[in-house]
Nucleic acid binder design. Sequence first.
RNA 1: GCGCCCGUAGCUCAAUCGGAUAGAGCAUCGGCCUUCUAAGCCGACGGUUGCUGGUUCGAGUCCAGUCGGGCGCGCCA
Length: 565
Amino acid sequence: MKEILRNLLLQAADTLLARNELVLNSQPEFGIERTRNSAHGDFASNIAMILAKTQQRNPRELAQALVGALPASDAVEKVEIAGPGFINFFLTTRAYHDELRRVFHEGGDYGRSRQGVHKIVGVEFVSANPTGPLHVGHGRAAAIGDTICRLLDATGWNVTREFYYNDAGAQIANLALSVQARCKGIEPDDPRWPADGYRGEYIREIARAYMTRETAGRDDSAWDTDLMASGDPDDLDAIRSFAVNWLRHEQDQDLRAFGVEFDVYYLESSLYADGKLDNVVKRIIDEGHAYEADGALWLKSTDFGDDKDRVMRKSDGTCTYFVPDIAYHYSKWQRGYKRAITELGADHHGSLARVRAGLQALDLGIPKGWPEYVLHQMVTVMRGGEEVKISKRAGGYVTLRDLIDEVGRDATRYFLICRKSDSQLVFDIDLARAQSFDNPVYYIQYAHARICSVQRQMHERSIVFDRKPALASLDRLQSEHAQTVLREISRYPEVVEAAAACLEPHLLAQYLRELAQAFHTWYNAEQFLIEDEALRDARLALAFGTRQVLANGLDLLGISAPETM
RNA sequence: GCGCCCGUAGCUCAAUCGGAUAGAGCAUCGGCCUUCUAAGCCGACGGUUGCUGGUUCGAGUCCAGUCGGGCGCGCCA
């Protein structure tokens, strides 16, 4: 719909241009938006006020000229000029009927578009260290990252989901020591317990499995073989491999239960094995962006906007954590991702400048703003009005698995996605569990189930719904409630586009609630299965169209659309 | 001390990349089931968008400052 109006305005501008009533040296950048107030029509454009600046003209007068030059369209009922120079468009009911017909015509593809067609984008998210189970924060990362992927896919991008495993380094060594201690029967409060060891119960479980020579699971392609525990408590290498494999398997199971699957698992250890890490360090030295001091090698990250230089290689010869990050992101660039998105917890935002600086230091023409980052703020979990602490070291914290088991996958995903990612989130377990209207996810699903129920009733009463005559009788939809539903449906493609463009999935979550609300209101006001055939057809068409849009939207959120509840 | 994010109704949060009269849900109060799912609907109540300036046709949104909260600032990851 928006595109129709945009084209009309551009044609009008062209007409004025041809008449020398307008001077432009570039395509005008202007907005067309849904109005908040129906007295202002359906859409409003600020084009006249934008152009007024460069044209040195009165915006209302300019708006008048533009409106005068607008080509005729059967989508537009009337056009008004209002306020400081808004051009308000009132659309015909026909325009809305056409949109509903499009829903039926395009079905599951309604709302999909092709802006990103043929372009590839790599999206990295979760990337949890394999040192423990996934917690709520990872859940938020998973929900946001996966939904962004679905949105990008819906707007024509070719998306690869990628998970980066820090399976090398100090935390992993710490993990191995912790499991080893458990293997030897050492408890966390024992003086022999490793400093900063992981104290959680899952460590005991891994140790038990290792000692009883279980097989650590494996169901992704990044590992070559299943790993058999040797059962030897002195073989730290074996313990490390086993523990990492075990935890990766657990994490993978949890993510699958959450409806999230990855295309690529990228292992930090592979950067050491194949020399990528050394190459990156060498390249940065060769480009003159590094120097030796105090026995360490420093990156001159201040050359690229960081507030201080950073140690790349410590005096003990090992690299600091962000060097593999640089090498890893460089590998994305090498693999052809002109667009890459990295989803991270906001507590890591400090590394962002470092990684970008390192990529600039390679001097390989990687754009300054590459990769794009999406950061999410912390999640606080509430239960019974009290905060549930999540600390990995302390043990007993709320895992993603706990939430999925207790709250359910759909509600968990919805709650983690429904707020803007850069605002802190309070996850109220009691509210998320509530099987009531308090719970927005059920509210949306209920709308879908209700429509399915109507369809079942229809069959029971042997009423036949034929799409063609139904879509021809939409003029019978006169009520304000039905009009509201029509309007909400027509917004869907715009919402998908905006959510994908801004990488803000919460816009879609919010919208689906509004669509469901419009439907529930209408449902309560009017009967669908009535005697008047044409009116019945029209109402059923609108109801089934609503169901389609709800299903499409829920699918993009990775939430099921149940037929009964 | 420096950097990033956030301050919006009693609570949890929106607000279409500067748009017109700031919106939902929860909570509170009052209505609606011989009707396709009441897991629903309608109405009422609720605001100086932390504060002070600035930019312009127009600011919750942008800028400066200030107060409050979170996170980060290591030869940890």
